[in-house]
Amino acid sequence: MKQLIYIITLFISSLSLAQNEAIFDQANALYNEGNYEAALGKYNTILESGQHSAALYFNIANAHYRLNHIAPSIYYFEKALLLKPNDKEIKNNIVYARNMTIDDIDDIPEVGFSRLVTNTTNLMSFDNWAKTAIGMVVLFIVLFLIYYFSESTSKKRFAFVSSMLSILIAFLALGFAFHKYELVEKNQPAIVFAVETPIKSEPNLRSPESFKLHEGTKVQVLDTVSNWKRIELSDGKTGWISSDAIKMLKVF
């Protein structure tokens, strides 16, 4: 019975995938004809079916860009970039979309040891750092056994030094794995969708206004209180924004 259910589910999924591919081709044809609104309707039909991909988000972003929809174009370019962070075409197009925004916010770059640690951590994913740590532990065990059972002094010396080096690398890789996990968890980006919205000093309407933000600006969400989000800008400024004024990027 379970096998029959699995086969039926697989068959339905295949039909849905084939249907979405046909809709995707139709949407692309409409886009190439300059009918961007109709193309968006087709793309959104695919999204509503639960299918997500960098190519789909990228095409949705391009359609919104053609229609001068600032926030949606940046939002979907950013979502595409989350799925394909090294894609040059996405990176190039998102620059054009960001040029439509009003807010001019400077980035505060990391410096010194903090920058070195972050750059090293970002060389690999959490999974790859974890696999490296496990691999080094296995290597340590093998080298330690060679050291323990070898009768040659030179082999013992080589195995001992190599085993110590491998366990050191294992601990470093484990540290980078946990740091990568923390970076990913702390990274909660969102895009401002309100045309203009006040940023409050506290999470309530009566609090003083610290500054204003406009559509398309990217922020980091630090905390949530009721219907308010505490955000941070790339220049270090913080404040509270209504949850309705932004859309979280890591929601798929």
Score class of each variant (00 low, 15 high):
1 M>V: 13
1 M>T: 12
2 K>W: 12
5 I>H: 13
5 I>Y: 12
7 I>N: 13
8 I>N: 09
9 T>R: 14
17 L>Q: 10
24 F>W: 07
35 N>S: 14
37 E>L: 14
39 A>G: 05
41 G>P: 03
43 Y>F: 12
43 Y>A: 04
56 L>E: 00
62 N>H: 10
64 H>F: 11
72 P>Y: 03
75 Y>I: 07
80 A>T: 01
81 L>V: 07
85 P>G: 09
87 D>V: 07
87 D>C: 07
88 K>A: 14
89 E>Y: 08
92 N>Q: 15
92 N>L: 15
100 M>N: 09
101 T>R: 08
104 D>S: 12
111 V>I: 14
120 T>Q: 09
122 N>H: 09
122 N>P: 04
125 S>A: 07
129 W>L: 01
130 A>S: 12
132 T>M: 14
140 F>Q: 03
147 Y>T: 04
148 Y>N: 11
149 F>Q: 11
154 S>M: 13
161 V>P: 08
165 L>S: 10
166 S>H: 05
169 I>E: 05
176 F>Q: 00
180 K>D: 05
194 A>T: 05
200 K>L: 06
205 L>A: 15
207 S>R: 06
216 G>E: 00
217 T>D: 03
218 K>S: 04
222 L>M: 13
228 W>E: 00
234 S>V: 07
246 I>T: 01
246 I>W: 02
250 K>N: 13
